[in-house]
Design a protein around this nucleic acid. Structure first.
Length: 173
DNA sequence: CCCTGATTCGC
DNA sequence: GCGAATCAGG
């Protein structure tokens, strides 16, 4: 549910793609269960391929020899090859990351690459912390803070601007 | 292992 | 038209 490439979503897709966001980033931002594959598929169908490529500046092989997988029909329904027998035997030592134990306790020192970098508190204060919760993929924030961070800031009420207030006050007077 | 886009093809 | 599975690569 919640799918279908509505004009709105296609517009967002185009914009984000042209802006240079990766397919997975776009997929995440569009939300609604859209995968990066879906995004890529749509991008191609729209003829939007090609732009500043983040992760592959040059294509090494033009890919002439590439007949492999078509020949050996993809086994989607038949083969459950299960050569994976013993998973256990490692109860110990799941590494404990103290920064993940509590929200808002990660410091600049303990903040890892996969932790939410949402700032908490006064950056100048000793008490300043980062959220520190798990941040999936390459995202800087955890899912919760990502949403907040992406919210198109609702236009800050003009009247909140001190300068505007003074001008308005002056006009009134 | 994380990621990137590209392609194929059943639906 | 859509997108999962896959490929090919950084």
């Amino acid at each position: 549910m919640s799918h279908g490439w509505t004009e709105d979503r296609v517009d967002s897709l185009k914009k984000l793609w042209i802006d240079g966001l990766s397919a997975s980033q776009i997929a995440r931002q569009l939300g609604g269960g859209v995968t990066r594959n879906a995004v890529i598929g749509k991008v191609h169908r729209l003829g939007l391929t090609g732009r500043a490529e983040p992760s592959r500046p040059r294509r090494a092989a033009p890919m002439p020899p590439r007949p492999g997988r078509v020949a050996q029909a993809r086994p989607r329904t038949s083969p459950p090859p299960r050569p994976v027998p013993p998973p256990p035997a490692r109860p110990a030592a799941a590494r404990f990351d103290p920064a993940l134990a509590l929200d808002g306790t990660a410091t600049a020192a303990t903040l890892g690459a996969h932790m939410c970098k949402w700032p908490i508190g006064d950056p100048g204060s000793d008490a300043f912390r980062f959220c520190g919760r798990p941040a999936p993929n390459r995202d800087p924030y955890c899912p919760e803070h990502r949403r907040v961070g992406c919210q198109p800031r609702k236009a800050a009420p003009l009247a909140d601007d001190p300068i505007v207030r003074r001008v308005l006050a002056g006009l009134a007077a």
